[in-house]
Amino acid sequence: MSPTTEPEQKTFDVGEAVLAYDETGDGPPVVYAHGLTGSRANDDAWTLTDWSPVVVAGRCLVRYDARGHGRSTGRPQHTDYTWSHLAGDMLAMLDHVAGPEPVDVMGSSMGCGTLVHAALRRPERFARLVLIIPPTAWETRPAVAEANRTSADIVEQRGLAAYLDAIRDLPLSPIHSQAPGEPPLPDITEALYPHVMRGAAATDLPDPEALRTLRHRTLILAWEQDPGHPVSTAEKLHALLPNAHLHIAADYADVTTWGERAAAFLNA
């Protein structure tokens, strides 16, 4: 997101955490949820995806830091960071910024998992859905869950700096390699990092058959050759969701069109 003016920083107390958020633009709200270890600041620092076309198209873009990420607070309790628990924060944020009206919502990776859980819990709160780089799920989830638990153990035993040093030379996916700049560091404190990662390890998308009940108009944006966000998840969601359209990007140049694609979909 590259807003032309610095948005006002706001906070919202959900009881277990205080969520930091901002609003850019005028018009009907569109709420955006980022991915694991990310934040609004990280999205601004490394503009892998630029959602400013949503604002230009006449919408108010509401971005928030998930609990334990960025400027939002969090507790040292891993169950707080499962997608089903984060869904409660998303629903509270929708009520806070939009009242009772259905809201268009975008979610990336962890935010995508959060969005799917929230939409199943309270489908009437949602208008259109944009599911961005759906993460590993179902049969592809166990390997990533084990990696998340391992990272939690290393940070607890040796510290966050040691873990980041250990993964420094791991190869990036092709699209990440094509994007300008360097991936930002995790925007999570060392104290909370193990709990956030264990929460991620303990989570998954809902039962596939339950997803067939989600009749919202849905845009799925996926990219190729990223084991953490396999095309297989996006394709399965496309098959399960009755009103979904799937777009798969082969390179970074295609990803730079996602802002316009999302804006056109949300305003259709």
Rank of each mutant, 00 (worst) to 15 (best):
T256Q: 12
T79H: 07
E124T: 04
E139K: 03
D254P: 01
L241M: 00
I133R: 00
E260N: 11
L131V: 03
H117I: 02
A20E: 08
S109W: 08
L211D: 06
A202Q: 03
A118V: 01
R215P: 03
T82E: 14
L91F: 06
R122M: 13
A57C: 08
D251R: 11
W46E: 12
P29E: 15
G58R: 05
P123S: 09
Q178T: 02
V62S: 03
A264S: 15
V116Q: 13
E124A: 06
Y64E: 12
T256S: 10
P227R: 10
P53A: 13
W83V: 05
A262S: 15
M90C: 15
I188N: 03
T114E: 03
A179T: 10
A234W: 13
L164Q: 11
L120T: 05
D13G: 02
L170H: 12
H195R: 01
A118D: 02
G35C: 13
L131M: 03
G111F: 04
A145V: 08
S84G: 03
V31G: 04
L192I: 01
D26N: 10
L160S: 01
A249G: 06
T140D: 09
P134R: 00
L241S: 00
A45R: 14
G38A: 13
T79K: 02
E182S: 08
N42R: 09
G74K: 08
S52C: 11
A268D: 14
G259S: 07
P227N: 11
P134G: 00
R217P: 09
P208M: 03
E8V: 13
G35D: 14
E260M: 07
T114D: 04
P76W: 09
A234I: 08
D50T: 00
A145G: 15
P227L: 10
M110G: 07
P194Q: 05
W258R: 01
P3V: 15
V31A: 04
R198S: 02
A264N: 13
L246R: 00
A179E: 07
Q9M: 14
A17M: 08
H34Y: 01
H195G: 03
T203K: 02
H117N: 06
A162S: 12
W51D: 09
T150L: 09
A161D: 14
I188W: 03
A152W: 04
D26A: 11
D169H: 15
P53Q: 13
H245S: 11
L241W: 09
V54C: 05
L48A: 05
G99H: 13
Q157N: 14
G111M: 04
A33F: 06
A166E: 14
A152V: 01
E101G: 14
G181A: 00
Q225M: 10
A87G: 14
E101P: 15
T203L: 06
A239E: 15
P102Y: 10
T37D: 07
D169C: 05
T82A: 14
I175C: 14
A147W: 07
G159Y: 01
D254I: 00
S232C: 06
V144Y: 10
Y32H: 10
M90Q: 15
A20F: 10
